[in-house]
Simulated assay, not measured.
Amino acid sequence: MTLVTLIISLVLLTGCNKFLNIKTYTQNNYFLNKYIIQNKIYHWNNLIKAAAHQYNIDEKLIKAIIYAESSGNPYAKSHSNAIGLMQIKPSSAGAEIYRINGKKGQPSVQSLYNPKININIGTAYISLLQKKNYWV
């Protein structure tokens, strides 16, 4: 009796449900389309366009990052203290862009809540990563 129980337990624990004729159905419903994304971030179109032109980055990439990181909320803050639309960490991406631009220190948390500053630093950082070949 215990041997049979052990075998059945092992089959169930290893996920071999094909032996038991159990079918699992998973369905993911994603209700995202380009219109939902555009409506969420339309407030920032002019800032995105200017930053994309300045740093030669595709606008769609910037919009995708903004939507993925903050859903267009300029006051978003992560548990790791990434701030704003593009979720910039002052001590890493912010400090790196400041250093490249000849500034000392790092951007303040308050300044990263400003969409213009946040998009500018985020796009500059994307450009930096592309130049370093971190992204292809």
Rank of each mutant, 00 (worst) to 15 (best):
T24V: 07
K18P: 02
N17D: 07
Y30V: 04
I48Y: 07
A52G: 15
F19E: 03
T14L: 14
F19L: 14
Y35V: 06
I48W: 04
L32N: 05
N39P: 00
L47F: 08
T14E: 06
Y30C: 02
I41F: 11
N46W: 10
I22L: 13
N21T: 07
Q54H: 12
T14A: 11
T14R: 13
N29M: 00
A51Q: 15
A52W: 03
Y30M: 01
K23G: 09
Q54M: 12
N28R: 08
K23W: 03
I57S: 02
A50S: 03
N45R: 02
Y55L: 00
W44Q: 12
N17G: 05
L47H: 12
N45T: 02
Q54V: 05
T14Y: 04
L47I: 07
F31K: 01
N45Y: 04
G15A: 11
I41T: 07
H53A: 14
K40Q: 05
N29R: 00
Q54G: 03
Q27V: 02
Y25N: 13
I57T: 02
Y35P: 04
F31W: 02
L13A: 10
Y55H: 01
K34N: 13
F19Y: 10
Q54E: 12
Y35T: 08
Y35R: 13
I41A: 07
L13M: 12
Q54S: 14
N17P: 03
I22W: 05
I48R: 11
F19A: 06
L20I: 07
L47S: 15
N56E: 04
A50M: 00
I22T: 04
Y25D: 12
F31L: 01
Y35Q: 13
A50T: 01
Y42A: 07
Q27H: 03
L20K: 12
K23P: 05
N46C: 11
F31D: 01
N21S: 14
A52N: 09
Y55M: 00
H53M: 09
T26P: 02
W44G: 12
N28D: 13
H53Y: 08
N45Q: 03
N56L: 03
L20H: 05
Q38W: 12
A51R: 13
H43Q: 15
I41M: 08
Y55Q: 00
N33A: 06
K18V: 06
G15F: 05
C16T: 09
I22M: 07
N33D: 15
T26A: 08
N17R: 10
I48A: 09
L20S: 07
I57N: 01
A51I: 11
N17T: 06
L32P: 03
Y25W: 04
T14G: 07
N39Y: 01
F31M: 01
N21Y: 09
I48K: 12
C16P: 00
N46T: 09
I37A: 11
I57F: 00
T24S: 15
N21Q: 14
I57P: 01
Q38L: 14
L20E: 09
K18L: 08
Q54C: 08
A51C: 15
N17H: 09
K18G: 05
F19C: 04
I36L: 03
I41C: 11
I41R: 10
